[in-house]
């Protein structure tokens, strides 16, 4: 049973297109005769366990962590130290390197979105073998970053297959994970390899909401593909594109730890540090949890910017509809 196969389909219901929670009036307890206290409290009982878990283990630790970032480490544990941790943080070449790498990720973001977008376009246009392509492209997305990283440790080895392929065209060999200028690109490349299938299926879901007559009309008019993409597909899929941009960015900021841990350990010489790896090292290896909390707070601020961006995007497209 598909998710969309509910009594009222996802696509036909306008409520599905906004973030607003559709409200069921029928369950208002006050409207019923003999509104018993237990029934009045019943909705709260249903949400209570979930809310408890989220508040205690997600939202409260956030407050705790920000608070913690203004205290000291080691002997100064629990003592207020003002902005000391942040001063240390922005004086640490490793953290600055991690932020520089975040900037690099932002620059690479259009590529990471365009690749699955273009592939989805071709699959939607029913390129020969499109069903097979869709199934194959998606499969690395289900593999753990740890597995992916381990596999690419073998592939990107100095005497591994990638360099062997380059050798046949008289290029390389490249020290993919050992050269500080190359390593971060190698890791990001592997991340894109492992996740582009995720964005691809999201794009395909977006395509299925696109009015097919528009595409047909453009093709009958003989418009070349780049113009179809620019004038029909991109405007028609703007919501999907925005969704993919935000989720890809969040993915890059928060789900590369496994790859870094397995492939480079942040090396060589700290060249592949990202904030999440820095937090892990300071907390786990260096016993500097307060400093790690400061780095967490900085990462959170970055995430808030991304989140606000998405909310404003949703508002805008909500109004457009």
């Amino acid at each position: 049973m598909p998710l969309a196969g509910t009594p009222s389909s996802v696509r036909s219901d306008p409520a599905a297109r906004t973030v607003r929670v559709p409200t069921g009036r029928g369950a208002r307890p006050g409207a019923r005769a003999g509104a018993r206290r237990a029934e009045y409290l019943a909705p709260y009982a249903l949400v209570a366990p979930a809310v408890l878990v989220i508040v205690v283990l997600r939202l409260y630790p956030l407050v705790l962590g920000v608070n913690f970032s203004f205290t000291g480490d080691g002997e100064l544990d629990g003592t207020a130290v003002g902005l000391d941790n942040y001063v240390t943080l922005f004086g640490d070449p490793l953290f600055l390197g991690a932020l520089r790498n975040v900037g690099l990720l932002v620059l690479l973001l259009p590529v990471a979105v365009a690749i699955p977008g273009l592939l989805a376009t071709f699959i939607h246009l029913r390129v020969p073998g499109h069903r097979l392509f869709r199934g194959v492209y998606f499969f690395p997305a289900v593999l753990s970053p740890v597995i992916v990283g381990a596999i690419f440790n073998l592939l990107l080895a100095f005497d591994g297959p990638v360099n062997a392929v380059l050798d046949t065209v008289d290029l390389g060999p490249v020290d993919w994970l050992g050269d500080p200028d190359v390593a971060i690109f190698a890791v990001v490349g592997v991340h894109v390899w492992a996740t582009f299938g995720m964005a691809l299926v999201v794009f395909l879901a977006g395509f299925s909401t696109l009015d097919p007559s528009l595409l047909d009309a453009a093709r009958i008019d003989g418009a070349p593909l780049p113009r179809i993409i620019w004038h029909v597909i991109i405007p028609g899929l703007s919501r999907t594109i925005q969704f993919v941009v935000v989720t890809t960015m969040i993915g890059m900021l928060t789900s590369m730890f496994g790859l870094l841990y397995v492939m480079t350990s942040g090396g060589p010489g700290g060249a592949t540090y990202l904030p999440e790896y820095y937090i892990w090292i300071q907390q786990g290896q260096m016993s500097r949890p307060a400093l790690a909390s400061a780095a967490s707070t900085v990462l959170f601020l970055v995430m808030v910017v991304v989140g606000l961006l998405q909310i404003s995007v949703l508002r805008r497209s909500g109004r457009a509809e």
Binding site: L57, P61, L64, G65, P289, M303
Partner: peptide
């Protein structure tokens, strides 16, 4: 809102809790 709080952000206090 909790969707936008990644694990990396709360991992230090969470480990303490």
């Amino acid at each position: 809102a909790a969707l936008f709080v990644p694990f990396q952000v709360v991992m230090v206090p969470l480990a303490r809790t």
